[in-house]
């Protein structure tokens, strides 16, 4: 069996007296392409933030590389959900990408030539090198999202956490970026939140449905039953690149 890079046991998390996650246990092997899906408000982003140490669980344990999350940061890459925050901030694409090279052990030091070359490489991979001096506020949402992906790549992580990384990017680039993730996955473990069923069928090695609890499917296959359980309503499943559609008539949805 491969090394476990992430293990979560009996995790519970409540937010303002509402149970967000209950008795969540799962593990992610080294080299996995672990896709998390589930309805809005089902706790996907919360689960990711718990794994990154941004939130503290009420009970249960989370170990990343065998350690408590905030202490393992140098080996972790992160692409946040693009919510269009702080878009007026005076910062260029290159400066954002360089943030991926920051770490606790190098506080107060200037960026090295290697840091710059990693940032350049990452920006080229997402096709944003020619926009490196563009202020973040002058970009479209999709371009900003690409820069966030570049920033995570610049970290050169062993595990990459991504929260809907292609939200807002055009379909052509989306295919390109998932091919990039597939290449990256040869040495980097990927944990990815997405609603895109096509992505799951093509790239996922493991699929997890999160809706307060978790259900993990190792085969990377998705069935209609799984989705209906995850989303709490009937879902039409059309695989390979075409997004799924939720049936107009909902019966007994939560």
């Amino acid at each position: 069996m491969k090394e476990l890079v992430l293990t979560v046991q009996d995790l519970c998390f409540t937010y303002q007296h509402a149970i967000v996650l209950k008795d969540v246990s799962f593990s992610v092997e080294q080299g996995d392409f672990f896709v998390v899906l589930g309805p809005n408000g089902g706790g996907k982003t919360t689960l990711l933030k718990l794994c990154l140490g941004m939130l503290k669980p009420d009970s249960g344990t989370i170990k990343v590389f065998g350690q408590d999350p905030p202490n393992t940061s140098r080996r972790i890459g992160y692409v946040p959900q693009n919510t269009g925050f702080n878009v007026t901030f005076p910062i260029s694409a290159l400066e954002v990408t360089l943030m991926g090279r920051l770490s606790r052990s190098r506080l107060g030091r200037i960026y090295s030539a290697y840091d710059y070359s990693m940032a350049e490489d990452a920006l080229k991979k997402v096709g944003m090198w020619q926009h490196r001096f563009t202020p973040i506020g002058h970009m479209s949402g999709g371009q900003r999202q690409r820069v966030f992906i570049a920033r995570a790549l610049a970290t050169d992580p062993e595990i990459l956490f991504m929260d809907e990384p292609t939200a807002g990017v055009d379909p052509e680039f989306e295919t390109h970026i998932y091919e990039l993730f597939r290449q990256l996955n040869e040495r980097v473990t990927i944990v990815l939140i997405t609603h895109d069923i096509g992505v799951i069928s093509q790239y996922a090695k493991t699929v997890a449905c999160v809706n307060r609890t978790i259900e993990v499917h190792r085969e990377g296959q998705i069935t209609k039953g799984m989705l209906e359980k995850a989303y709490g309503c009937p879902v039409e499943l059309v695989a390979h690149g075409i997004p799924h559609r939720v049936y107009p008539v909902h019966k007994g949805g939560h």
Binding site: G53, R74, P80, N86, L98, M99, G100, L102, S103, R151
Partner: peptide
């Protein structure tokens, strides 16, 4: 660079280990 990071994206700064 740390002040830029915490001012622009505090959560990311936390994840990469900035206090």
């Amino acid at each position: 660079k740390e002040f830029i990071a915490i001012s622009y994206d505090e959560e990311f700064a936390f994840v990469v280990g900035i206090p």
